[in-house]
């Protein structure tokens, strides 16, 4: 058994795989990171020649794009329904922009490569969204800190609080906020951006679910608290504009217990 720790730059952010393995993980990490880069090559709107960029410019159609584009399109539609329209892959300019989901969708696909290879004891930090494998053995990796709602490069950077997901059904935490890239989430239902809170962290059983709900909650504002509270298997912690916290019912039980 040995440790591995791999950083991969992709999609304009950094993915970190950390875990323990009995086999040489290099080949499988490569396959996992290739999955990320492949998704980036197709879905990036920062690459002018990507299928998604061409789609946005009206130069191609979904049916002419690689098959995964339609798959992601349908996935986005089903999430739009589940979130009552608060998650939307359609920009105010009516172009298809699934970036609210693609990062974690690709992260999940990458993780499958490790699982298929029998590597089952790891976590993935996908640019601030966390996935914990079922087989995670290291106690501290079940604990996920929530960043303060400031940039990690800010002098004030640090930890807001810590969640402990060990012994729970939860395997993922995703955070949406304005700290790193400003107001990058659009409101699919009006031109107004919510001013209720600066950051929301969603705790879920899988990373796509956490990511989508965090994006939807950020778009909707604090009324999403009740919506999330009414969903099974989902919790959320909000940092309000005045610095106070609000949370769904189950969050209190997820706060880490003191180590001593």
């Amino acid at each position: 058994m040995h440790e591995f720790n791999h950083l991969e730059e992709c999609m304009g952010t950094v993915f970190q795989f950390s875990g323990l393995s009995e086999i040489d993980e290099a080949e499988f990490l490569e396959s996992a990171t290739n999955t990320l880069h492949k998704a980036d090559a197709i879905f990036s709107l920062y690459k002018p020649e990507s299928p998604l960029s061409r789609l946005a410019r009206g130069e191609t159609s979904v049916s002419q794009c690689p098959g995964v584009v339609e798959q992601v399109w349908e996935l986005c539609e089903s999430w739009a329904k589940k979130t009552d329209g608060w998650f939307s892959a359609f920009t105010p300019e009516h172009t298809f922009d699934p970036s609210g989901l693609v990062k974690t969708w690709a992260a999940q696909a990458a993780v499958e490569k490790l699982l298929e290879a029998g590597i089952t004891d790891f976590t993935l930090n996908a640019g601030g969204d966390i996935l914990i494998s079922d087989g995670q053995s290291r106690e501290e990796f079940w604990r996920v800190a929530i960043s303060k709602p400031v940039s990690i490069a800010d002098a004030e950077a640090g930890v807001l609080t810590v969640l402990d997901l060990s012994g729970t059904e939860f395997r993922a935490v995703a955070t949406s906020g304005s700290a790193e890239r400003g107001q990058h989430i659009w409101n699919p239902k009006s031109n107004e951006n919510q001013q209720d809170f600066t950051q929301v962290s969603v705790i879920a059983r899988d990373i796509v679910e956490a990511d989508v709900w965090a994006t939807a909650a950020f778009a909707e504002g604090i009324r999403s608290l009740e919506r999330i509270n009414n969903q099974a298997h989902l919790e959320a912690l909000y940092v309000m504009a005045d610095g106070s916290l609000q949370a769904t019912d189950g969050v209190l039980a997820l706060l880490a217990k003191a180590t001593r």
């Binding site: 976590t123 079940w142 996920v144 709602p149 935490v173 949406s176 906020g177 880490a256």
Partner: peptide, 17 residues
């Protein structure tokens, strides 16, 4: 107490490279 606990990962808004 939670804030005084060590941890393996930190979740936050997506940072740039």
């Amino acid at each position: 107490s939670a804030n005084g606990t060590n941890f393996g990962n930190m979740s936050g808004a997506t940072y740039t490279t």
